[in-house]
């Protein structure tokens, strides 16, 4: 087997192991409650019968290890259990929600990734001149404000005062045509773009600068190549891995940003679903959502690692 395939296989196996450990951690995370889960779900006024019923439904009378494997077995077969509060099948509700969330994240990524790379290149091109300084100033400001506040500022000025875009995503219907869906999510997409843009731009700038300061770039310049050739033929092939890394890291960051933004704009996605059920203390839903978010996060990091393995000439062309 070629070393590249071997490394990728190792990395995938590691990702799966990590995911398994994460499922354990999430499960333990919901066990550490001092006292009784059923009691805290139903509150102090609950009758003893209701408590006993809930305990039985939750399987609280079984030992934790058995409960964990029962849960994991279900998850592996696509059965995420039923929600305590509504009695609905979690999987069927969640897939629809996940689809909505991915729709939102997808459009945020489609806009922010090319924009961030372009602006990152611009900052490198005009390093230490005003475009670079402006970009780093905006970055500092935007990482100093939480996502939900950026959302409200935009909502207030663009949505309510200027009425350019819908202030909330209440009008979002999953079965509508793409254009009206896009209209409904324009503002949340703008906010998400702003949120990840700053980080992504700054990290792209750093990654490209790192490559541009290599000795082989000097060699290319001393060959009399034009700036375009230097960048396209020499900097670009070596920048793919670091830039993909930056992009994946920020998409992972986007996944977390989505949670808050969905709540702000009342968007029927995974994030809102999760937050709603955390306040209702609906443990099975929280576990399921946590696991899916973690899986997406780990998956994106895995892709970044695989890209850097594949693009490494030392591994692709062993001695």
């Amino acid at each position: 087997m070629s070393p590249v395939l071997k490394l990728i296989a190792q990395r995938v196996a590691l990702g799966l192991l990590l995911l398994f450990m994460v499922s354990v951690l999430i499960f333990i995370g919901t066990l550490i409650l001092p006292g009784d889960v059923a009691q805290s779900i139903l509150g102090q006024s609950a009758t003893p019968e209701a408590l006993a019923n809930l305990r039985r439904d939750l399987g609280l009378n079984d030992p934790p290890v058995q409960r964990y494997f029962a849960w994991l077995g279900g998850v592996l077969q696509g059965d995420l259990g039923t929600a305590l509060t509504s009695g609905q099948d979690i999987a069927s509700v969640m897939w629809a929600r996940l689809e909505n969330t991915l729709f939102l994240a997808f459009w945020a990524a489609v806009i922010s990734v090319p924009l961030a790379i372009f602006l990152g290149l611009l900052a490198v091109r005009y390093r230490d001149r005003w475009p670079d300084k402006l970009i780093s100033g905006v970055t500092l400001a935007s990482i100093s404000v939480p996502e939900f506040l950026i959302a409200y500022v935009l909502m207030f000025f663009i949505g309510v005062k200027l009425r350019w875009l819908n202030p909330t995503a209440i009008g979002f219907r999953p079965d509508a045509d793409v254009l009206s869906k896009l209209e409904a999510i324009a503002l949340p997409v703008a906010v998400l773009t702003l949120v990840v843009l700053a980080h992504m731009m700054r990290m792209t700038r750093a990654a490209i600068l790192n490559v541009m300061q290599s000795a082989y770039i000097e060699t290319a310049e001393l060959k009399g190549l034009s700036l375009f050739s230097v960048i396209w033929r020499h900097a670009f092939p070596n920048s793919i891995a670091p830039v993909v890394n930056v992009v994946m890291l920020n998409l992972a960051y986007l996944v977390v940003g989505v949670v808050v933004i969905e709540v702000v704009f009342v968007y029927p996605g995974m994030g809102q679903y999760l937050v709603d059920h955390v306040s209702k203390r609906d443990v099975p839903v929280v576990q399921a959502c946590g696991l899916i978010f973690a899986a997406v996060y780990i998956g994106l990091n895995l892709i970044a690692d695989i890209v850097s393995i594949v693009s490494n000439p030392r591994l692709r062309h062993p001695k």
Partner: peptide, 19 residues
């Protein structure tokens, strides 16, 4: 590594759902 492989907001929400 394990703890950091879950976004901290998500993990916090999971824990706060029972605490």
């Amino acid at each position: 590594d394990l703890v950091m492989s879950i976004p901290s907001l998500i993990l916090a929400l999971v824990i706060l759902s029972v605490m």
